[in-house]
């Protein structure tokens, strides 16, 4: 019991729902991947990705072995103005014809407290791979009607777009882009619980 850390929180509630370690799949039906970037104090633009898929492999007994893999369809980048969306798909930004996929794979998980974790991994955008840290918060954890454990997992982090070769429009778009990934994971529903 003492080692049920990362997911004990997720996976157990006051003796009711019981969490199963296993593989959990998620995609755009379970949440959102959003980003925002500042324009030098004038205003902030927001966007997101409409198609992605991910797998979370968790064994509460071996937290350090937690795996997260996410693949994002770069061409699904979405932003309120059509000109901005085409700009983001073009070679200066995500270059979606050359690099159709964005991917992230976690390599380590570190517990901060019962609901906060520090994730490190490899982020690949435009064919460039960089080390990327994310902060994970587990919010609104509860048992749903059927007794499975449901939680909102929110991951946030900051990337430097320049690190991935996206250096255009530096006079108007800041380098630091904030990411926010929010997923509702149903931990009773492992794809192949083990």
């Amino acid at each position: 019991m003492a080692r049920l850390i990362f997911l004990a929180v997720l996976l157990m509630t006051a003796g009711t729902a019981r969490a199963a370690p296993g593989l959990y799949a998620f995609d755009q039906r379970h949440g959102t991947i959003g980003f925002n970037v500042g324009h030098f104090g004038l205003f902030t633009s927001e966007g997101g990705f409409e198609r992605f898929s991910g797998r979370l492999t968790i064994d509460p007994a071996r937290l350090e072995d937690t795996r997260v893999e996410v693949t994002i369809d770069a061409a699904s980048v979405a932003i309120a103005v059509p000109e901005a969306a085409s700009m983001l798909k073009a070679p200066d930004y995500f270059d979606v014809t050359q690099h159709p996929a964005i991917s992230f794979g976690a390599t380590s998980v570190e517990r901060r407290d019962d609901t906060h974790f520090h994730l490190r991994g490899q982020l690949r955008i435009r064919g460039i791979t960089r080390e990327q840290a994310m902060e994970i918060a587990i919010l609104d954890r509860h048992a749903d009607g059927s007794g499975s454990e449901v939680a909102d997992v929110v991951a946030s982090g900051e990337i430097s777009r320049g690190d991935f070769g996206m250096v255009a429009d530096r006079s108007f778009i800041e380098d630091v882009v904030r990411l926010r990934i929010s997923m509702r994971i149903r931990f009773g529903a492992a794809v192949n619980g083990g």
Binding site: L42, F43, V81, A84
Partner: peptide
């Protein structure tokens, strides 16, 4: 407007 650009 779709982009939340302030009026300064």
């Amino acid at each position: 407007a779709p982009l939340r650009i302030p009026t300064l």
